[in-house]
Design a protein around this nucleic acid. Structure first.
Lengths: 163, 163
DNA sequence: TTAAAAAAGTTATAATATAACATAATCAGT
DNA sequence: ACTGATTATGTTATATTATAACTTTTTTAA
């Protein structure tokens, strides 16, 4: 079974997560938008690991104040907010959501997704974007958004669990 | 309203489509797999345009022999076959399917998807793949499959319908 | 010709996502 | 603080996409 540690051992996820949450709070303040308790809770759930999380998984783990179980729109609206603020990304190939590493700037999401441990590694590789933009430009295509999701096996799993 | 012509005027889609269908028949024969009437019908529906088509849209347009309406698994099984043979691609960001331009060789699907006319242009740009592979290799990530879907506005629509 | 395999039919249901409207909380201007 | 406007959340119902499980039909190969 793959370790639950999202990334190699040097990765301290508690720090990783608290930085992300702190950053999110700061950005929302700067932007004058409200990171309400519900939205924060969803963001925390998404940040619990580096594995993209489905909306219904989030729903199941949501603690509503009254102990009453939240309904889907509650989660989807929070996710919509977080997406709009660039605090999370949606992984189309998995119908799932993951915390964004660079929410301060709008950018395209590029992911390496390990089929074995489920972790998604966010890339920030301008070369890939440039290469795509170049090709698009030749064809006169104006790029608005990019979905780049690469599946395979991460170094961690490749080393530990030879296929 | 955007023209229904999938691509610029020089594109004769009747020829485009019949080539694709002929090629598909040839490949299936070579591979010893059966392009049954049902599978062919689904492939034809997918090839009617260059707009990715949802499974339920295909379902609605399926003519069953008895006039009885087909059920979802019928379509999904045909789609699974066509995907396995590389005759179509699935567009994850649209939950939809589109005919493959190069079914003779397994390859990654790269698409420019016009938000205006709905057409998806399949790229075959090794530079993009190489760029991604390079970056992945640096991280020790072994790539198994790639989802590359670029949304925006195609040259056709850009020229005719200034945003 | 007949058993095995493959394909298609059929029924039910799972998983993901949104529409529409009701209620509650927050904010801006007084 | 008060009040109307705005924003956020609750709630119910339903749309959309996809698959599981089992049956029947068709095709293949001995």
């Amino acid at each position: 079974m793959p370790s639950d540690a999202p990334f190699p051992d040097e990765h301290n996820h508690a720090i990783c997560m608290s930085q992300a949450l702190g950053n999110a709070a700061k950005l929302c303040l700067q932007r004058g938008v409200r990171l309400t308790p519900l939205r924060l809770q969803v963001l925390e759930l998404v940040w619990r690991s580096h594995k993209p999380l489905g909306a219904y998984t989030i729903l199941e783990n949501l603690q509503t104040a009254q102990g009453r179980r939240a309904a889907p729109p509650t989660v989807y609206r929070a996710l919509d907010f977080l997406l709009a603020q660039g605090l999370i990304h949606r992984i189309a190939s998995l119908n799932a959501f993951i915390g964004c590493l660079h929410p301060e700037a709008t950018h395209v999401g590029q992911f390496l997704i390990c089929e074995h441990c489920g972790n998604a590694i966010e890339l920030d590789t301008p070369e890939i974007t440039n290469c795509i933009m170049q090709r698009a430009e030749i064809l006169g295509f104006v790029v608005k958004s990019q979905t780049i999701e690469i599946s395979g096996r991460c170094a961690h799993c490749q080393a530990r669990y030879a296929s």
